[in-house]
Design a protein around this nucleic acid. Structure first.
Lengths: 230, 230
DNA sequence: CGGTATCCCCCGCGATACTG
DNA sequence: CAGTATCGCGGGGGATACCG
């Protein structure tokens, strides 16, 4: 992006921050993504070449640091500058949560993104000490993005887009909007169940302990999040 | 700009905030600009058609409100949502102040922008009760943007780009970088004078009272600015 | 898995002119 | 002063293929 030719620090900040995808890359890193493909999963619509380009730019800008361990995969970290910029990203998100909800379109409710975020934040310690399989069925989606499975085993959480073959312990049957609204804190599980937008099928024990393991978006508790910022 | 197809509030916020020029328009409004041409002066490199387009977009997004008084010029205001977004703009500016200073290029030091900002923030109440003319000479600039005059009279501050004909009470002779660095708080008047980057010629009384009327950028005192945010 | 290389389209935006 | 209309280009970025 061409610069603004202004010495104003807002302009200089915007020259970095306003590059397309940049806030979303930083959001991913704030949420713990380190590897190239993790960042890509968090932004599935972004082409790998563009991600590569942005990471190089952010590295040159002193926002991101690339660490290459011999024999291992490279990892990307936020520098101190990057973490500071991450706080701006979070504040933009808080603004969006409060003021841009009405701009959400049907296209925005991408279940793949939702599942990727759930996979990341789910609390595996709240599960019984055995393999647990939870399925999600989004009835409004075409068949190729309708079904997902979370497999929690030994503290690890895996996301599958094809039936993994294991018995399903608990099944969510819902729509992408209902599930995302619950995830964001716009609605609650109870409300969506009552409105018949969401059905839970299966293991009574998992249902009863759902508050122990079901997780919500980073933005589902704005007050707490805001207080965590300096 | 095309959307991100993500329900994440960061993405929805970025779809508005990341439009080119948008943070700078909001910055201008946070600084008190209301009229079309005020906004244009604050962003002289922006074409009027693009400014018009952005204002319409921001109005549709609920960030800006246009008020048309009969017979008078239209005025633009930030809504509550817009003021909230303005806080994000300020925080981005604070980030830029701290972390993006090294990215400043020669092109960024535009004296016209500097003068426009000085005109806005100068404290006219600190001046004697007569017309005062202060000239600024930027020796590194080509002749067409080398000289500016601030005329303070009866509480009004005018900016001239041509010699107004009045006697000059005080003359700044300096470079665009030195003046802007003082303005931003990166340097001080004393330091630039000592380093022979800045000379004050003229009225001893105005020199002695300079702390009463000389003003600095909104960002020159980051701690105070940060505390003013919620 | 972790990226590069390439191609090409499209539209954002800069420039300029013009109008009430 | 307060915008609108038009035009043309540049390059950003989407898509896809490919490589180590």
């Amino acid at each position: 992006m061409k610069g603004y030719s202004q010495f104003c620090p807002v302009a200089k900040g915007a020259e970095i921050f306003n590059e397309r995808w940049t806030p979303l890359i930083i959001r991913e890193m704030m949420c713990g993504s380190k590897r190239f493909n993790e960042l890509k999963h968090g932004n599935p619509m972004m082409s790998p070449s563009l991600l590569s380009q942005r990471l190089k730019f952010l590295e040159a800008a002193g926002v991101v640091e690339k660490k290459v361990h011999k024999g291992e995969s490279a990892e990307y970290f936020l520098t101190k500058s990057g973490k500071d910029l991450g706080e701006v990203v979070v504040r933009l998100g808080l603004w969006g949560l409060k003021w841009a909800r009405s701009r959400l379109t049907r296209e925005d409710y991408d279940p793949q993104l939702l599942m990727w975020d759930m996979r990341r934040r789910i609390d595996s310690s709240g599960f019984p000490q055995r393999r647990v399989v939870i399925s999600f069925m989004f009835e409004d989606m075409p068949s190729n993005r309708r079904a997902y499975w979370l497999i929690v085993d030994n503290g690890e959480v895996d996301l599958c887009v094809k039936f993994p073959g294991f018995d399903v312990d608990l099944a969510f049957v819902t729509t992408s909007k209902s599930m995302a609204d619950v995830w964001m804190g716009y609605s609650t599980l109870k409300r969506e169940i009552r409105k018949k937008n969401l059905t839970l099928r299966g293991g009574r024990d998992l249902k009863n302990s759902i508050d122990d393991w079901f997780s919500y978006s980073l933005f589902s508790n704005p007050e707490e999040l805001r207080e965590s910022l300096s």
